[in-house]
Structure formats: C-alpha cells, structure tokens
Design a protein around this nucleic acid. Structure first.
Length: 147
DNA sequence: GCCAACGTTGGC
DNA sequence: GCCAACGTTGGC
C-alpha cells in the first residue's frame, strides 16, 4: 500500500496505531480493499513520490470493508458528488501499525533484485496505490529488511 | 519541474 | 461505443 509520506507516513501510523485507509479513488485499488483483503492480512507500507521511494514497514488489515466517509464530506478533497449513501462508490479498510523496518528497502533495491522482477509495483507504468504481493516476494523483502 | 503512462470524462 | 482531451501519479 502506497502513501506519500508528506501526507501520511509510517511514523504517522505508528503514532495513530490504526487508520482508515481513506482517499483511494481508483477502482482497481478499491477492489483490492473491498474484495481481496481480509482481516489479519499484512501489507507493506510504501513511501511514494518522495526523495527515496521505499518500503518502510508493515501494517495489518483490521476491519471489514466499509464506505469511505470522505466521499460524503463536501469539504474533503476526496468528496465524490456522484456517490450516495445508498450506493457508496468508495470502500476502505482500517489498518493497524505492525512494524517499522530497521532500514527502508528502497525502490532501487527492489529493481535491482532479480527475484523481485515480477512484482506488480515494479512493472512499467504501474500507478496503482494498492497491489498484491506474492508470498515468495514477501519473504525476500523481509530478508532484505532484516539485513 | 519534466514527462510517460494511464484512468476518466464527455462530446459525438 | 469511440476516442480526444484532460487530469493524476510518481519516478527521475
């Protein structure tokens, strides 16, 4: 799960403990939260659009999907006038802080690791803020993070 | 700040 | 339903 650290960083999640993952306005990313993520699932926390893009830690899914409240808030930048409470367009899940890596695993590092070449986040043109990670890739990245 | 990639919008 | 125009993402 990507987040721009100037908006919301792993340290913010550490302070907050839990956080609704609001503001996702891409249907594919929404579908991952709505249809694929289960309570207890772990996710890498990725800092995007920053000097050194990197995976910086881990969060955990702690809720069923439910409507993203910001879509109904006319003052929010995530307000969606086309969404209704009867048929909410945007769903989210709550995440909980699990750990911050001792060191960030940088995008450079991910790209230079031949065993990670299949990762969706590394594919050309990928812009999705939420992408699946295979068990195999997960283990490799955990190894890198512990070095 | 640039720009490639890609999603969305809306006219037709 | 096509597709040009436009907006956003995000690495560099």
């Amino acid at each position: 799960m990507k987040s721009e650290p100037q908006n919301y960083s792993i340290d913010n999640l550490y302070e907050d403990h839990t956080q609704p993952w609001d503001g996702v306005r891409n249907y594919q990313a929404r579908n991952f939260m709505r249809d694929k993520m289960q309570i207890g699932d772990l996710a890498f926390f990725y800092h995007s659009n920053t000097k050194i893009p990197a995976i910086v830690g881990i969060s955990k899914v702690i809720s069923e999907p439910y409507p993203d409240f910001t879509q109904f808030d006319a003052h929010s930048k995530y307000f969606d006038p086309k969404s209704t409470k009867d048929a909410p367009r945007w769903m989210l899940i709550d995440v909980e802080f699990v750990e911050k890596f001792k060191r960030p695993v940088t995008l450079n590092e991910l790209r230079s690791n031949v065993f990670l070449a299949g990762m969706q986040i590394l594919q050309k043109g990928n812009r999705l803020s939420i992408t699946p990670v295979s068990h195999e890739h997960w283990e490799i990245i955990m190894q890198l993070a512990s070095k």
